[in-house]
Amino acid sequence: MARILIVDDSPTDVQNLRNLLQKAGHSVSDVSSGEEAISRVRSEKPDAVIMDVVMPGVNGFQATRTLSKDAATAHIPIVVVSSKSQETDRVWALRQGAREYLVKPVKEADLLAKVNAVLAG
């Protein structure tokens, strides 16, 4: 069982992701902004982060870059889950430090496969 932080400003998306991850046995917490994500990851050191991109204030790309460049949090894998479906968005997310990229709506099998892959290292 891994501790996973969901970062998304959509309560519906958070609940959907939470249900899928908890059903797979993971412990899940959530925040609704990039600023909160940076603070929570630094303080709680989750095993993985599920990061939305489009959020007010600090967006998911910015939060991913901040966390992946910080020596204290760089080892924590980030899976970007976004409605942005362009290849350039996927490439940009990976360049910011994300380990995986999924487009919403996510399929349960795809989400769990990506999460398990990043947790395995």
Results as ranks from 00 to 15, higher is better:
Ala2Leu: 13
Ala2Glu: 11
Ala2Cys: 11
Ile6Lys: 09
Ile6Cys: 10
Pro11Glu: 00
Asp13Asn: 15
Val14Ile: 14
Val14Thr: 04
Gln15Pro: 03
Leu17Cys: 02
Arg18Ser: 09
Asn19Cys: 06
Ala24Leu: 01
Gly25Met: 13
His26Asp: 09
Ser27Asp: 09
Ser27Trp: 04
Asp30Arg: 07
Val31Thr: 14
Val31Trp: 00
Ile38Ala: 10
Ser39Arg: 15
Ser39Gln: 07
Arg42Pro: 05
Arg42Ser: 08
Arg42Trp: 04
Glu44Thr: 14
Lys45Ala: 08
Asp47Lys: 02
Ala48Lys: 15
Ala48Phe: 03
Ile50Tyr: 05
Ile50Phe: 11
Asp52Tyr: 11
Val53Gln: 12
Val53Thr: 12
Val54Phe: 02
Val54Tyr: 10
Pro56Asp: 00
Pro56Ser: 01
Gly57Val: 07
Asn59Pro: 03
Asn59Glu: 08
Gly60Tyr: 00
Gln62Trp: 00
Gln62Pro: 03
Thr64Ser: 06
Thr64Val: 12
Arg65Asn: 12
Arg65His: 04
Thr66Arg: 07
Leu67Ser: 13
Lys69Glu: 12
Asp70Met: 00
Asp70Tyr: 04
Ala72Glu: 10
Ala74Ser: 08
His75Met: 01
His75Tyr: 03
His75Gln: 12
Ile76Leu: 02
Ile76Trp: 02
Ile78Gln: 15
Val79Ser: 14
Ser82Cys: 06
Ser83Gly: 12
Ser83Phe: 05
Ser83Tyr: 07
Lys84His: 04
Gln86Lys: 12
Gln86Met: 14
Thr88Tyr: 04
Thr88Ser: 15
Val91Met: 04
Trp92Ser: 06
Trp92Arg: 04
Leu94Met: 15
Leu94Cys: 14
Arg95Met: 05
Arg95Trp: 03
Gln96Asp: 02
Gln96Thr: 06
Gly97Lys: 02
Ala98Pro: 10
Tyr101Gln: 09
Leu102Ala: 10
Val103Ile: 14
Lys104Phe: 03
Ala109Ser: 10
Ala109Thr: 15
Asp110Gln: 15
Leu111Phe: 08
Leu112Glu: 12
Ala113Pro: 07
Lys114Ile: 02
Ala120Gly: 11
Gly121Ala: 12
